[in-house]
Design a protein around this nucleic acid. Structure first.
Length: 431
DNA sequence: CGAGTTTGACCAGCGC
DNA sequence: GCGCTGGTCAAACTCG
C-alpha cells in the first residue's frame, strides 16, 4: 500500500462526526485541535444544513465579533480538505474557464447539493472574481464574516472569492494542507452561485470589449493613429497610456487570487510571464511585482506580492483569462535555471537589488509532479463539495482591508466520501 | 547582443 | 477638484 493510499484510507476512516482532525493525520498542516475546531465545526454544520447535508443548523447567537473570531481561529483544526501538495495552481489557472466548467459540472452532479431547501438558493450576482488561497498556515485564515450585513443586495457586490489549496512547502507530505473553497457572501453558495462566481468569461468579457471600444472612441484613437509620432513626448506618452489595457484599473471580477506559502516569488503556474513592473503598494512593505503573459495576443496579467505580516505568504493575483492553452513543450518542473525566453522567474539577484526568487522554491515545484493529475484529483474529488462561509481577510491585498467572506468545506465526512467516490473511479485507488 | 529585470515617471481611477 | 494609490511604460541595467 502506498503512502497515498494510507493517507486516503486514514481520511476515510474518519467518523461521521469527523472528529479526527486532518491535522492529526497530516501534522504539517499546522492545524491543531481546540476551540477552533468547534468554530469551524459549527459553521460547517450551519452551512451543511443549508445545503442539504444532514447536520444540525448553526446557532448564530454565538457568533463572535470578527476580531474575536480572528483570534479564535489561530488554531483551527478545521474541517478542511487536505490535498496533496502536488496539486498545482497551474491546473486551476491554465484555464479559468476549464476550472469553471469542471467546478460547476461536478457540483451539478452532486445529488446532495441539490437537495437543499429553497432558501439556500441565493443570488450572489454575476460579477465575481475568484480567490484561491494556497495556504497551510492557519494564522492566515481569513476573518470570520458573520458580522457582515445580511441585507438584500449585499451579495451583488462584486468581490473576490477564495479557495484554500495546499501549500507548496508541505511537499514532503502527499497530503498536507487544507483546502477550502471560499465565497463572497456568508451564505452558502449554490450551484448557480459557483458557476457565476467561477466563470470568468461570458458576458463580462463582452462588456469589457464594449468598454474598450467605447474608450477608444472617446479618445479618438483612430484619428490619432497616424499622428502619434508628431506628438510631444509627454502627450505621446499620454496617448499610449490611454490606449493601453492597463490604463484602467482591472476589473475585480476578472481576477483569480492565489495565496500560498512559498519562498519563490513567482511560482510556476504553467504559463510564461514577463515582469514589467515592481511597486510597493500601500499597507505592504513588500514590493508587488507585475507580470504579463508572454503568449502572443494574450493580455493576462498577474501581480505577485508577499504578505505584509508574513513574508512566507505569497499572494498571486491573475487578471484576465488566457486565450491559449498552457505552452507546450515545457515542464512545470522548476528545477534548474530557466532560459530567458519566456519564463518569468526573476533572475539571479543583481548588485544592489533585492533577490526576487529563491532556489528553495525550485525544489518546491520539482517535487510536486505530476501537477495535472493532482489538479484532476481536485476537480473530480473535491469540486462538488459545498463550502460555507467562514471568514474573510484579504488584509494586505486591499486598500481598506475590507473583511470578505470565505467558505470552507462543511463536513469532513462529506469530504472524505467525496474524495473516495472520485478517487476510486478516476484514479483507481483501491480502498 | 539579445532578452529579461529594475526603477522612476507617468497616468487614470477612486475616495474625500 | 484634489490628492492618493495602483497599474503601466520604457530607459537603463544586468546577465549569459
Amino acid at each position: 500500500m502506498s503512502d497515498c493510499d494510507g493517507i486516503v484510507r486514514a481520511m476515510l476512516e474518519q467518523t461521521d462526526n469527523g472528529l479526527n482532525s486532518i491535522s492529526q493525520i497530516f501534522p504539517k498542516t499546522n492545524l491543531s485541535t481546540d476551540h477552533q475546531s468547534e468554530q469551524r465545526s459549527s459553521l460547517g454544520e450551519r452551512v451543511s444544513s443549508r445545503i442539504g447535508f444532514n447536520v444540525p443548523p448553526l446557532e448564530t447567537e454565538n457568533i463572535m465579533s470578527p476580531f474575536a473570531v480572528s483570534r479564535s481561529q489561530t488554531n483551527v483544526p478545521s474541517p478542511l480538505i487536505a490535498v496533496s501538495p502536488g496539486f498545482s495552481p497551474s491546473a486551476l489557472l491554465q484555464s479559468p474557464k476549464k476550472f469553471s466548467n469542471s467546478f460547476s459540472q461536478h457540483i451539478i452532479q452532486s445529488p446532495v447539493a441539490n437537495d437543499g431547501p429553497p432558501e439556500m438558493v441565493e443570488s450572489s450576482g454575476g460579477d465575481y472574481a475568484t480567490t484561491m488561497i494556497f495556504n497551510n498556515d492557519v494564522p492566515h485564515q481569513p476573518m470570520n464574516f458573520d458580522h457582515m450585513p445580511h441585507h438584500e443586495g449585499f451579495y451583488d457586490i462584486p468581490t473576490e472569492e477564495s479557495v484554500y489549496v495546499p501549500s507548496h512547502e508541505s511537499h514532503a507530505d502527499l497530503i498536507g494542507a487544507p483546502l477550502v473553497t471560499s465565497f463572497e457572501s456568508d451564505e452558502v453558495a449554490n450551484e448557480t452561485d459557483i458557476m457565476n462566481i467561477i466563470s470568468l468569461d461570458s458576458e463580462d468579457e463582452d462588456e469589457d470589449y464594449k468598454e474598450d471600444e467605447e474608450y477608444k472612441e472617446d479618445e479618438n484613437v483612430d484619428e490619432e493613429d497616424d499622428s502619434v509620432d508628431e506628438l510631444p513626448p509627454r502627450k505621446r506618452r499620454k496617448y499610449e497610456v490611454s490606449d493601453m489595457f492597463g490604463a484602467k484599473r482591472s476589473r475585480k471580477d476578472e481576477r483569480v487570487i492565489l495565496r500560498m506559502e512559498c519562498e519563490e516569488d513567482n511560482p510556476d503556474d504553467g504559463y510564461q510571464w514577463r515582469k514589467y513592473g515592481r511597486k510597493i503598494v500601500n499597507g505592504n512593505s513588500n514590493p508587488r511585482s507585475y507580470y504579463k503573459c508572454t503568449y502572443g495576443g494574450c493580455n493576462v496579467k498577474k501581480h505577485v506580492e508577499r504578505g505584509a505580516d508574513d513574508v512566507k505568504l505569497l499572494v498571486v493575483t491573475y487578471d484576465g483569462k488566457h486565450n491559449h492553452p498552457i505552452p507546450t513543450g515545457r515542464s512545470s518542473n522548476r528545477s534548474g535555471p530557466r532560459n530567458r525566453s519566456g519564463f518569468s522567474v526573476s533572475q539571479t539577484p543583481r548588485l544592489g537589488r533585492l533577490p526576487s526568487s529563491s532556489s528553495a522554491c525550485q525544489y518546491c515545484y520539482s517535487s510536486l509532479e505530476p501537477h495535472p493529475d493532482m489538479a484532476l484529483l481536485y476537480m473530480t474529488g473535491l469540486s462538488k463539495l459545498q463550502s460555507f462561509p467562514v471568514n474573510h481577510n484579504h488584509g494586505f491585498m486591499y486598500r481598506h482591508d475590507e473583511p470578505i467572506i470565505d467558505r470552507v468545506i462543511p463536513d469532513r465526512t462529506e469530504v472524505y466520501n467525496g474524495m473516495k467516490d472520485r478517487l476510486l473511479p478516476n484514479f483507481g485507488f483501491n480502498f
